[in-house]
Amino acid sequence: MSAQTDYAQAGELKFGQVGIANLRVRSLDPAQLAAEMAERVQRAPNLFARAAVVLDFGGLSKAPGIDEARALVDGLRAAGVLPVALAYGTREIDALSQQLGLPLLAKFRAQYERADDAPAPARAPEPLRAAEPSPAPAAPAAASASAPGLIQATPVRSGQQVYAEQRDLTVLAPVGAGAEVLADGSIHIYGALRGRALAGARGNEGARIFCREFHAELVAVAGHYKVMEDIPAALHGKAVQVWLENGQLKLAALD
Score class of each variant (00 low, 15 high):
A110P: 00
Q111W: 05
Y112M: 08
Y112C: 06
Y112D: 13
Y112Q: 13
Y112S: 14
E113L: 13
R114K: 13
R114N: 12
A115S: 11
A115V: 11
D116S: 12
D117A: 13
A118G: 07
A118Q: 14
P119Q: 06
P119E: 06
A120T: 14
P121K: 05
A122D: 11
A122N: 10
A122G: 14
R123L: 04
R123Q: 11
A124H: 08
A124F: 05
P125C: 05
E126C: 04
P127F: 01
R129H: 01
R129Y: 00
E132N: 07
P133T: 09
S134P: 00
S134K: 11
P135N: 03
A136V: 12
A136D: 06
P137R: 03
A138Q: 11
A138N: 09
P140Q: 04
P140I: 07
A141C: 02
A142F: 14
A142Y: 12
S144F: 00
A145D: 11
A145P: 12
S146V: 15
A147I: 10
L150D: 02
I151G: 00
A153P: 06
V156T: 07
S158P: 02
S158C: 07
S158W: 01
S158M: 02
G159D: 04
G159R: 08
G159H: 06
Q161E: 14
Q161M: 15
Q161A: 15
Q161R: 15
V162D: 01
A164Q: 04
E165I: 12
E165P: 01
Q166I: 10
D168Q: 11
D168G: 13
L169C: 03
T170W: 00
T170G: 00
V171F: 07
V171Q: 07
V171H: 05
L172A: 13
L172R: 15
L172F: 03
A173I: 10
P174D: 15
V175L: 04
V175E: 00
G176S: 15
A177G: 10
A177Y: 02
A177Q: 13
G178Q: 05
A179E: 09
A179Y: 10
V181N: 02
L182I: 05
D184W: 03
D184G: 10
I187G: 02
H188P: 00
H188D: 15
H188V: 14
Y190H: 15
A192L: 02
L193Y: 07
R194Y: 06
R194S: 14
R194V: 01
R194Q: 15
G195R: 07
R196V: 03
R196K: 13
A197M: 03
A197T: 08
L198M: 11
A199C: 09
A201S: 13
A201P: 01
R202Y: 03
R202D: 08
R202T: 11
G203L: 04
G203K: 04
E205V: 08
G206P: 03
A207S: 12
R208K: 13
R208E: 10
R208L: 10
I209G: 00
I209R: 00
C211Y: 07
F214H: 07
